[in-house]
């Protein structure tokens, strides 16, 4: 019984939150890695693209709610998602036309594009703040729990409860669907294949008649979709604030680099690796160990390896270790 209780505590505080957070990071890292693979620079504006997409979703959600449309037990934001993706795609395509395309044409060094993306980051952040302000916004509606802690206790008769929130399940399911679609697209469609060819060898792809502008445009649309989905899921799971997405940049980049920049599979693995490490290292293991160890060995302290404020340090430490021992990342990404 104790072992089951320990497992339930573990699932409640480590596994389920880690899974949801990992799915959000994986979606974010996929966007970063796609931009890197096709456009060949690290996009610092990615966090703020996510923020912009989430903001669009919130505005559409409010509109839908005002019209009395809801999605039953599911959050209305899911209906708003396609509209938000369209708005974000329009924004990033316009950004590419107005800003990035020039640097592609003059074949600027990747590091210049990184600095340009810093400028884009400033402007996008400001746009989000202009439109929706800086207050914390909670836009999750519908049912809050699939199963609440008390129900679980009554159901199983265990001492510990397991709460699974709707948003957590939605996050994992949506992320799985998005990743499935992406891999199907990259693997089976003509456009997807041309994207992979362009990423592997630009010159060869151009020689075989692939239109680079088309590849770039499609990439931006996919990146907008991934960023918006990741942003909305994160916002549903936690809450929306205009500047929290900038802070997500570090774990997202860590996930993409750990997995191997340019490798979609790596981005997903990296996302879950970073998320689970963050949650495991900053969780206080007292209760789990209390069930597992005999009573006289039970720990006195919290058995927390690091305080939660150091979660950056965790993503960062993993990043450094991987880079030192395997500089191209776990899945052999590209290294320009």
């Amino acid at each position: 019984m104790d072992i089951i209780n320990a497992l339930v505590v573990f699932a409640n505080f480590v596994f389920v939150p880690g899974l949801a957070y990992g799915a959000q990071l994986a979606l974010g890292a996929l966007g970063v890695t796609l931009v890197y693979g096709i456009l060949r620079f690290s996009n610092f504006a990615h966090g703020d693209t996510m923020a912009f997409g989430t903001m669009a979703a919130i505005l559409v959600t409010r509109g839908l709610q005002a019209m009395g449309i809801s999605f039953g037990p599911l959050p209305t934001a899911l209906i708003a998602l396609p509209f938000a993706i369209a708005a974000t795609a329009a924004l990033v395509l316009a950004t590419d036309r107005g800003i990035y395309r020039f640097y592609r044409k003059v074949r600027a060094a990747p590091v210049i594009l990184v600095i340009v993306s810093m400028g884009v980051m400033f402007v996008m952040n400001a746009l989000t703040r202009f439109i929706i302000g800086v207050d914390e916004i909670n836009f999750a509606d519908g049912g809050r729990f699939i199963i609440a802690a008390r129900e679980f206790k009554e159901l199983t008769g265990l001492a510990e409860g397991l709460a699974i929130r709707t948003t957590q399940v939605i996050t994992v399911v949506t992320a799985a669907v998005a990743v499935g679609l992406l891999f199907w697209f990259l693997g089976n469609t003509r456009t997807g294949k041309s994207m992979r060819a362009y990423s592997d060898n630009e010159d060869l792809a151009l020689l075989s008649g692939i239109n680079p502008e088309r590849v770039v445009a499609v990439t931006w649309i996919i990146v907008a979709a991934l960023a918006t989905t990741a942003g909305v899921l994160y916002g549903l799971d936690k809450s929306f604030k205009a500047f929290t997405y900038f802070q997500l940049l570090l774990p997202i980049f860590a996930a993409a680099i750990v997995g191997g920049l340019g490798s979609p599979l790596g981005a997903i693995a990296g996302g879950f690796l970073i998320a689970f490490s963050e949650v495991t290292v900053t969780y206080a293991w007292k209760r789990v160990l209390g069930y597992l160890l005999p009573a006289d060995l039970a720990p006195e302290g919290l058995v927390q390896l690091m305080s939660t404020d150091y979660k950056f340090a965790v993503s960062f430490a993993i990043l450094v270790i991987v880079l030192l021992f395997r500089p191209t990342g776990l899945f052999r990404g590209k290294s320009v």
Binding site: P110, V114, L250, F312, A313, L319
Partner: peptide, 13 residues
Amino acid sequence: DYLAIATLGISEI
């Protein structure tokens, strides 16, 4: 790029 991410991380730490 990695130096950039590394310095960004260190400063947050």
